[in-house]
Structures are given as structure tokens and as C-alpha cells.
Computed example of a mutant assay.
Amino acid sequence: AQEHGVRLVLEALHPMFAADRAVISTLGQALDLAEPFPAETVGVVVDTYHVWWDPDLERQIARAGAEGRIAGYQVCDFLLPLADDALLSRGYMGDGFVDFATITRWVGQAGYTGDVEVEIFNQAIWDQPGDDVVATVAERYRRHVLPFL
């Protein structure tokens, strides 16, 4: 990747996906794997759905920022009960358990100024009219994320 000017980005997935989908469960593990490589070659993404639970998250976000490795910030909420496919248990910001104010503040304090991606995988939301979804996402973003950037 480095020889071709491509940046690889590692993303920790919630530990419930360790059995069938992922081998990286924490931001710290992603940073450890990235560490031998230049930051412009290997970065990380902070996805609230996957990392909100991590008791070491504040320190690892600060570490990622200090190393210049934060390549993206993704927001959506963690809902219970889990859907049959846990990956589809994402919700609008404010409907679940993620502390967006705190995590977003940490990401901003770490120096991240890039895009914030709203990434919601949820069949019930996908089944809603698109204009309603966009309006809800915009309103929730303004309320739960934007003030803390």
C-alpha cells in the first residue's frame, strides 16, 4: 500500500463480532497493529457503534490523535435488544447507549477535523421514507454530535 500511496485504515469491531467477522476488538489493538507503519500509510477509524463500551477509549483516542492516525469518525447508536443480525442493531444517535458528547469531544481534542460519517445499518430505518431518514439523521447530528466537535 505504501509503495502505491494507499492508506490502509483499521477499524475495531465490537467484541461480539470476534467469532465470525473481526480480529480487532479495541482501538488499542488497531493502534498496536498500525504502530510499525507510518501514520500516512496505516490509520484507524473511530466507530462509536463498535468502541463505545471500551474503558480505555479516552486514552486510545488521544493516542490515535497524537500519532496522527485518526482517518475517520463514524457515528450511530448501539441498540438493544440486538437484531437477529447484530450488525443491524445500529440506530439514530440518541436512541441507544453511546455517549456521543464525550466521545465526540475526545475525538475533537485528539485533533480530528475530518468528515463525520453517520453509518446506520438497521432494516427498520432502511424501510422508512428516505426524506424522513435524512431529516432525522440531520436533527440528531445537530443535537448529539455537532456541538461537541
Results as ranks from 00 to 15, higher is better:
residue 1 A to H: 14
residue 3 E to L: 13
residue 4 H to D: 07
residue 5 G to H: 04
residue 6 V to Y: 11
residue 6 V to E: 04
residue 11 E to A: 05
residue 15 P to E: 06
residue 15 P to R: 08
residue 16 M to S: 15
residue 17 F to D: 02
residue 18 A to G: 05
residue 22 A to H: 12
residue 23 V to Q: 15
residue 25 S to V: 13
residue 28 G to H: 09
residue 29 Q to D: 13
residue 30 A to P: 12
residue 31 L to C: 05
residue 32 D to P: 01
residue 32 D to L: 09
residue 33 L to E: 10
residue 34 A to G: 10
residue 34 A to T: 10
residue 34 A to W: 03
residue 38 P to R: 12
residue 39 A to G: 07
residue 40 E to W: 09
residue 42 V to C: 15
residue 42 V to T: 03
residue 43 G to I: 05
residue 43 G to T: 04
residue 44 V to S: 14
residue 44 V to I: 14
residue 45 V to D: 01
residue 45 V to H: 01
residue 47 D to A: 11
residue 47 D to R: 05
residue 50 H to N: 15
residue 50 H to R: 03
residue 50 H to V: 00
residue 50 H to I: 00
residue 52 W to F: 13
residue 53 W to P: 05
residue 53 W to Y: 14
residue 54 D to C: 08
residue 56 D to G: 07
residue 58 E to H: 09
residue 59 R to G: 15
residue 59 R to F: 03
residue 60 Q to E: 15
residue 61 I to L: 06
residue 62 A to M: 09
residue 68 G to R: 02
residue 69 R to V: 09
residue 69 R to C: 05
residue 69 R to M: 06
residue 71 A to F: 12
residue 72 G to Q: 02
residue 74 Q to Y: 08
residue 76 C to D: 12
residue 77 D to A: 01
residue 77 D to E: 01
residue 78 F to Y: 15
residue 80 L to V: 15
residue 82 L to F: 15
residue 82 L to E: 04
residue 84 D to S: 14
residue 84 D to T: 14
residue 85 D to N: 15
residue 88 L to F: 15
residue 88 L to D: 15
residue 91 G to K: 09
residue 92 Y to N: 00
residue 94 G to F: 11
residue 96 G to Y: 10
residue 98 V to G: 06
residue 100 F to R: 10
residue 100 F to S: 10
residue 100 F to L: 07
residue 107 V to M: 06
residue 107 V to I: 00
residue 108 G to T: 13
residue 108 G to H: 11
residue 112 Y to V: 07
residue 115 D to S: 10
residue 116 V to R: 03
residue 117 E to L: 14
residue 117 E to S: 14
residue 117 E to H: 13
residue 120 I to P: 07
residue 121 F to P: 05
residue 121 F to T: 02
residue 122 N to G: 12
residue 123 Q to H: 10
residue 125 I to N: 03
residue 125 I to W: 00
residue 130 G to Y: 00
residue 131 D to G: 04
residue 131 D to H: 12
residue 133 V to Y: 02
residue 136 T to V: 07
residue 136 T to P: 04
residue 137 V to E: 07
residue 137 V to D: 07
residue 137 V to T: 09
residue 138 A to Q: 11
residue 141 Y to I: 04
residue 147 P to R: 08
residue 147 P to G: 04
